[in-house]
């Protein structure tokens, strides 16, 4: 099992380098802002002294490399600065809004896997038939619209015309749940309030599905493509010539080798969801990172922008790490290779 750990350590190392790069990139982007962030934050009525004072506090007059150095040393202490928009530490803001976004993404990710993979398998197993054509069509439609379009359409159909789901929000106002982790699914369980748990689940379905649709389409398309390729491999013919039933071949012998390339793409789709969550949250008034993110961007709230992007990228890198580990686990070729490259 040593190679697995070696690969993992290596990947963590590379991820850290990449994350450092991300911080530089985003720091650089944030500092080329035209206009004075201090002036924007204080408003037109502020005096020149007030602006100068804030500029000094924000170290805006120092060279960018010094600023970045300060940023890094603060980051090392878990400090991402103060948001000019909320006047609170960025870390606190993110800790408040991130769980709602993550909850949405996890549910959407689960939908993507639970719906997308079987669709892809079915499509490949019955390739060339009407089942295949129907699934391919649905999958292509899924990837052909941004998630806000799906959000709007789903909302119109299943919240307004057929009022099956709530129109907006994370949970009905009637429930007062104490915030412990920020994840409603956990907090409602901690409170032992099953009705609230059900209510939260009922609220998450529509936005999560809107968010998942393009991932479902992508997963189904990729799984199909990989499996069709696998179906031409000698080992599938071997399984066939030994009379292994079609169903078992599809779900086991052709599926597992095909899953390896699919997994990598599923990881990337998770990343896309981190961005697309902004769109879905806006439609369903989901109290996640989206409104905060868009607000701080529009207000040119430097520390908050850098912090938000950094946290999102870190989340993305962690998800990719998990995918890498999963790929290693199901792909014995990597697990047992001596040259862990």
């Amino acid at each position: 099992m040593t190679p697995t750990i070696l690969i993992f350590v290596r990947r963590v190392g590379i991820s850290c380098i990449v994350l450092l790069g991300v911080s530089m990139l985003i720091f650089a982007i944030a500092r080329v802002i035209p206009g004075d962030p201090a002036r924007i934050a204080l408003g037109p009525s502020a005096t020149a002294e007030q602006v100068a004072k804030l500029r000094a506090e924000l170290r805006l007059d120092e060279p960018i490399t010094t600023q970045y150095g300060h940023f890094l040393s603060e980051l090392a202490q878990g400090d991402l600065g103060i948001s000019l928009y909320t006047n609170r530490p960025v870390v606190v803001d993110i800790a408040q809004f991130l769980p709602a976004t993550l909850e949405l993404i996890f549910v959407a990710g689960a939908m993507m896997i639970v719906i997308g993979l079987p669709l892809g398998i079915a499509s490949a197993r019955w390739r060339g038939t009407w089942i295949d054509n129907a699934i391919r069509m649905i999958a292509l439609l899924g990837v052909s619209a941004p998630s806000f379009v799906w959000a709007v359409i789903l909302m119109l159909l299943f919240a307004y015309f057929l009022p099956l789901f709530p129109i907006a929000g994370r949970i009905s106002d009637t429930f007062a749940i104490e915030q412990v982790t920020g994840f409603l699914f956990l907090d409602t369980l901690i409170a032992g309030n099953l009705a609230a748990f059900g209510n939260a689940a009922w609220h998450v379905i529509l936005p999560a599905f809107a968010l998942a649709l393009s991932g479902i389409g992508q997963t189904a398309r990729l799984t199909r493509a990989n499996m069709v390729e696998t179906y031409d491999k000698p080992y599938v013919e071997m399984a066939r010539s030994y009379g292994v039933p079609d169903r078992r071949i599809a779900n086991r012998y052709a599926f597992k080798p095909s899953l390896i390339p699919s997994l990598t793409i599923i990881g990337l789709d998770f990343a896309a969801m981190l961005g697309n969550a902004f769109l879905v949250e806006a439609v369903f008034a989901w109290p996640g990172l989206s409104r905060y993110g868009v607000s701080v961007i529009l207000r040119k709230d430097l520390d908050a922008i850098v912090g938000t992007v950094l946290i999102i990228s870190a989340t993305f890198l962690i998800m990719n790490l998990i995918v890498d580990v999963l790929v290693t686990i199901i792909n014995p070729r990597i697990r047992y290779s001596r040259t862990a490259s």
Partner: peptide
């Protein structure tokens, strides 16, 4: 990799937010 590890929309958003 650095560019690819910021979710696509988020990167464009932050650039857009900075620029007019």
């Amino acid at each position: 990799d650095v560019f690819l590890s910021i979710p696509p929309l988020v990167l464009a958003m932050s650039i857009m937010g900075v620029l007019e």
